[in-house]
């Protein structure tokens, strides 16, 4: 009997010690996970967020060299890509994409992702960031902005302007135009007058 008791005692103390040191599943830990059988988990290939000792700046994801163009990227000097007439710095008046319901829906979605935090859902400059100390956010219903050409808006989105950062790196070219299309519908909605409403719908208005 004594042997059994001490035997169980050893097992229980051992188990408590292991749990005490190793904790439970799901416990927070600052240390990287142990890879118990590290098979071929980490291979000497370059993945995003890994560094490279080959290049002196340590970056594995290389920035395109000056004067080179990544495969598949837009590079032509066309209104679609620059918002300007080919070979000049004059902005295009009207966007180069056809306006379709699909484009408008896409523009609305993209606007809500990228612009809404600052400019607000109605583009009146009352986004949530205003509450946290972003004092200067443009009201996109200002006459100055409503009368801007599509090309100029495109440039603002791509490269930013004054205190607004550029979104060229975050938003694809077609999506930038789609956002402009949506912005125009927001502006139009505010400028609308009774004559814009089809006759058979006017009855429902106050």
């Amino acid at each position: 009997m004594r042997y059994w008791l001490s035997f169980f005692l050893v097992i229980i103390v051992g188990a408590i010690a292991v749990i005490g040191i190793a904790g439970f599943q799901g416990g927070k830990s600052r240390k990287p996970p142990i890879e118990i059988f590290p098979d071929m988990d980490r291979q000497p290939k370059i993945r995003p967020q890994t560094g490279s000792s080959f290049f002196s700046d340590g970056k594995a994801s290389r920035v395109a060299l000056l004067g080179t163009i990544a495969r598949g990227s837009h590079y032509l000097d066309t209104p679609l890509v620059t918002g300007q007439l080919t070979g000049s710095t004059n902005f295009v008046d009207v966007m180069p994409l056809a306006i379709t319901a699909k484009l408008l829906a896409r523009g609305r979605e993209r606007y809500q992702i990228s612009c809404l935090p600052c400019h607000g859902a109605l583009a009146d400059g009352n986004g949530i960031t205003k509450k946290y100390g972003m004092a200067v956010v443009a009201n996109l219903h200002d006459k100055r902005i409503v009368t801007q050409t599509d090309g100029e808006l495109f440039k603002t989105i791509t490269h930013g302007k004054n205190l607004m950062g550029g979104y060229g790196a975050n938003i694809a070219i077609e999506d930038r135009w789609a956002i402009i299309a949506h912005l125009r519908t927001l502006q139009l909605a505010r400028l609308g007058i009774l004559a814009d409403v089809p006759l058979d719908r006017r009855a429902g208005l106050k």
Binding site: A22, Q25, G26, G27, K28, S29, R30, K31, P32, P33, I34, E35, I36
Partner: peptide
């Protein structure tokens, strides 16, 4: 992995 990974918070 339920033990080794879950909870990793560097």
């Amino acid at each position: 992995p339920k033990y080794t990974r879950v909870g990793y918070q560097p």
